[in-house]
């Protein structure tokens, strides 16, 4: 089977600071990749490169056999990207904003309209379709962002903390959505700090630390290698030096 995403020896620096240090990764259709790592490990940079937002990197990145460096536009049209609590043009209504996004993806107007209405109705946002988003709650905005990422029916969906701000019911909807999209052969790149969610929904977990891949495999693989712990513990074991428990202990001792 051919990989949908192929990353080969990827390096990226900002000035003197090297953020990615030789990442190699093959991702296949229908996989849900839990992409985790501490803050500043290089997650967002990888995601930005995959979305075709950064072109000044060393190494090779292909999406569906298309080089990200050479044909960023072709890659962008295959990828749906939902940034974490991203900026949006808040003075627009969801309808205006989503129609705008649909045009940028060059969807036919009628198809876009049907999809917007259906997706927004599924999220329970239909009554708010024509209200300006500056009054929206965090969760409502996140729903609009998710719809904006899915509208063009992408092969690859990159989600950065997609559950933040969502209420419990919406969380269920998004989790199920991810499973169903994967079952249809779409590739999901799921980046998050919520380890329990990542553990549940991912078929494969890639842990990145300090610009390199520290672990790669199913949760069972990781358990076999790191002891039969929860993902949270495995994460802490691989990414901290002193251990998280020490930090908590220090916090409590600060009262004394």
């Amino acid at each position: 089977m051919k990989p949908v995403i192929k990353i080969k020896n990827l390096w990226k620096s900002y000035g003197t600071k090297t953020v990615l240090k030789g990442i190699d990764l093959d991702v296949y259709a229908g996989q849900v990749i839990g992409y985790i790592g501490p803050n500043g490990a290089g997650k967002s940079t990888t995601v930005k490169i995959l979305c075709g937002l950064l072109s000044s990197f060393e190494g090779e990145v292909w999406v569906n056999d298309v080089s990200v460096k050479e044909h960023p536009l072709q890659v962008k049209s295959k990828v749906g990207y939902v940034p974490e609590l991203a900026e949006m043009y808040e003075v627009l209504t969801p309808m205006e904003f989503l129609e705008f996004v649909a045009t940028l993806y060059q969807l036919p107007a009628e198809m876009a309209l049907t999809r917007i209405e259906r997706m927004m109705t599924a999220f329970g946002l239909e009554p708010h379709l024509n209200q300006r988003m500056d009054t929206f709650s965090k969760g409502m905005r996140q729903k609009v962002l998710i719809v904006a990422g899915l509208l063009h029916n992408p092969d690859i969906l990159i989600l950065d903390e997609p559950l933040s701000g969502l209420d419990a019911n919406a969380v269920i909807v998004v989790k199920e959505l991810i499973q169903k999209l994967a079952a249809e052969g779409k590739t999901i790149f799921y980046s998050s700090h919520m380890m329990d969610v990542v553990e549940k929904i991912s078929d494969r977990i890639v842990l990145i630390n300090d610009g390199s891949i520290a672990a790669d495999g199913t949760i069972e693989d990781l358990r076999q290698l790191q002891g039969n712990h929860s993902l949270e513990k495995i994460f802490a074991g691989l990414t901290t030096k002193g251990g998280v428990q020490d930090a908590a202990g220090d916090m409590v001792r600060a009262f004394q």
Partner: peptide, 14 residues
């Protein structure tokens, strides 16, 4: 409008 970087640039727009 720095929002353009997040909203327009990830889309397939030349």
């Amino acid at each position: 409008d720095v929002r353009d970087n997040q909203i327009i640039l990830p889309k397939p727009v030349s």
